[in-house]
């Protein structure tokens, strides 16, 4: 069940030029979080910026009641969030939305993340490792300095392959090129989150090989709970109407989604 909770900032550190990780003590919310769900965060007590900001659950330390967020500074709200000091209060609403379907014990799964799109995949990897799954992550970023998340996955025992657009670390090129070296038959599930063009390539690869898959979408949100109908997104499975990203998603089966060129142009978790 979702709720409102006033959390406390434990840490808010810069991990790359434009990226931050925030750890929040929010025990009631932490206990409820599923991988792929998001929190709706009130950035300020004033009315500008006005709306809450949706951010994925990056990691959860269940026993200590700590939730981590990984966010990229893109505008007014995330800039303010980056200035939040240790011990400051954070107004959290959540967890919200449909998360990822967890694999069963001993499955073999592949994750593909681009930029901060990797955020919802870490807690998924953690719980999958608890279930003795073999987990491989293909992680793409603009430059090597942006690949900080890789070590958090490696610590969980995830096999990580990286790709950088500037060639400074790992494979030189886009992350989807790494799929050429993968055999879809080695995996029972695929999960992806990142820029829409990346997800479009990843999901057509999975579909071409008959691999089950889920992806996470973004849309501007007001309420976050299915009340305002502001986060409508055109998805194959919901035609002639629209899907509500906040409550029908943000995680959808790749079969439900046909990432059109228009959606692909839209900014997702871009670098």
């Amino acid at each position: 069940m979702a709720a409102l909770e006033i959390g406390r900032v434990l840490d808010n550190r810069q991990v790359a030029r434009d990226k931050y990780v925030m750890d929040i003590a929010a025990p009631a919310t932490a206990r409820q979080c599923q991988p792929g769900q998001f929190l709706h965060i009130r950035i300020t007590d004033t009315y500008d910026p006005l709306l809450r900001r949706p951010l994925s659950v990056y990691d959860v330390l269940f026993d200590s009641g700590i939730i981590s967020l990984l966010y990229r500074v893109v505008g007014q709200g995330t800039s303010l969030l980056a200035k939040a000091a240790v011990d400051e209060a954070v107004d959290i609403m959540g967890p919200l939305g449909q998360g990822f379907t967890l694999p069963s014990e001993n499955e073999s799964i592949i994750l593909v993340g681009g930029g901060v799109g990797v955020a919802p995949l870490l807690y998924l990897a953690r719980l999958s490792r608890v279930r003795q799954c073999r987990v491989r992550l293909l992680l793409g970023a603009a430059g090597g300095a942006q690949l900080g998340a890789a070590s958090r996955f490696e610590k969980l025992g995830v096999e990580v392959k990286t790709a950088c657009l500037d060639g400074s670390a790992g494979y030189h090129g886009v992350v989807t090129d790494l799929l050429e070296h993968e055999d879809a038959g080695d995996y029972s599930r695929l999960y992806t989150c990142g820029p829409a063009p990346m997800m479009a390539v990843v999901s057509s690869w999975a579909q071409a090989h008959g691999l089950w898959g889920e992806l996470s979408l973004e849309e501007h949100m007001a309420c976050g709970v299915g009340a305002c109908l502001g986060c409508a997104c055109q998805l194959k499975a919901f035609e002639p109407g629209y899907a509500k990203v906040c409550t029908d998603g943000p995680v959808f089966n790749i079969q439900a989604v046909e990432l059109s060129p228009d959606q692909a142009r839209k900014e997702g978790h871009n670098e």
């Binding site: 006005l50 501007h220 007001a222 409508a232 629209y242």
Partner: peptide, 23 residues
């Protein structure tokens, strides 16, 4: 009614614009 095509909302200074289209 299915409502308007997205994007349907955008934040503005101390406010927001919506064009839900009566879905």
């Amino acid at each position: 009614r299915v409502g308007n095509p997205p994007p349907r909302i955008i934040e503005t200074p101390a406010g927001m614009l919506n064009a839900i289209g009566l879905e």
